[in-house]
Amino acid sequence: MRNLWNIYKKGLIDENPIFVLALSLCPALAVTTSVVNAFTMGLSVMFVITANNVSVSLIRNLVNPKVRVPVYITSIATIVTFVELVLEAFAPLLYKELGIYLALVVVFAIILARAEVFASKNKVIPSFFDGLGMGSGFTLAMVIIGVIRELLGSGTILGHTILGAWYNPALIMILPPGAFLLIGYMIGGLKVYEAKKAKKLREVDAQ
């Protein structure tokens, strides 16, 4: 049980897909202009990554290693199509907002990476938790970026005005350069934090 918790937990911070692995930066730049978009994209990816991890793990002994990538992609594409149809049916506005990026989930590096690195070598239940953890970490990162960008770039959060009329939204934050800067500084901040933590651990060890 503890083991599964650890598998889940590592996706949140220690191996966060966006801030640490730096995979799937494309959606992190493109659809984080508002919290709703970021959250929907996060949940979609979480679902795809978990479902795909399970399916890849189930068939891991049947797939010839030489054709594994096409097989994985087919599996991902099937799940993404499912997500797309569900969103189109129940949340057409969001579906329109996310646009091409929803279909692009098929080729997100993080999904293929988890299938390749984890699901193809582990049993179904650990793979499920790995997908869930990575998906949660992805969603978390997307929402954090989304909150900051929406707040500074439009003065709102979830569409509600937070910063009043006195605030003149900085358009750079809802344009790609703002996202690049923000992600860069967040990765930098995380590195500083990790370096401090590692230094503390060394000091404790030294004593």
Binding site: N168, I172, L175
Partner: peptide, 10 residues
Amino acid sequence: AALMVSWPIA
């Protein structure tokens, strides 16, 4: 450039 992108009208 950052100001130009952020507040083009001003």
